[in-house]
C-alpha cells in the first residue's frame, strides 16, 4: 500500500491518497493520469490490468486500486 501511495503521489501530487475516495469522480485523476498509473502499476506489481478493469470504482481510492491489484495477482 505504501508503494502504491508513493506512485500516486509521484504521478499526481495534489491529493490526500490516504483518505480520498473520489479520485475519479472529482477529476483528481484524469484519463492521462490513468494511462501513466496503469503502466506504472503493471511494472511495479507485475500484473496485467485489462481494459475492462478501467472503471471509476477501481480507481476512486488508493484502497480500491490496492484491492484490484491484489485480486489480479491472485487470478494470475
Amino acid at each position: 500500500m505504501e508503494r502504491l501511495i508513493e506512485i500516486l503521489e509521484d504521478i499526481q501530487p495534489q491529493a490526500d491518497y490516504e483518505t480520498c475516495t473520489t479520485l475519479i469522480d472529482d477529476h483528481i485523476l484524469d484519463s492521462m493520469s490513468i494511462i501513466a498509473l496503469v503502466a506504472e502499476l503493471e511494472e511495479e506489481f507485475d500484473v496485467t490490468i485489462p481494459t475492462v478493469e478501467i472503471i471509476p470504482a477501481n480507481f476512486n481510492s488508493a484502497q480500491a486500486m490496492y484491492d484490484m491489484i491484489t485480486r489480479l495477482q491472485e487470478e494470475d
Binding site: 484519463s31 494511462i35 501513466a36 496503469v38 503502466a39 506504472e40 503493471e42 511494472e43 490490468i49 485489462p50 481494459t51 478501467i54
Partner: peptide, 18 residues
C-alpha cells in the same frame, strides 16, 4: 481510447516517455 492506451505497445511507450 482505453483499449488503445492499454495496449502493450502504447503502455511501453508511456513507461519510456514518462
Amino acid at each position: 481510447f482505453y483499449p488503445l492506451t492499454m495496449s502493450k505497445p502504447l503502455k511501453k511507450l508511456t513507461t519510456k516517455a514518462r
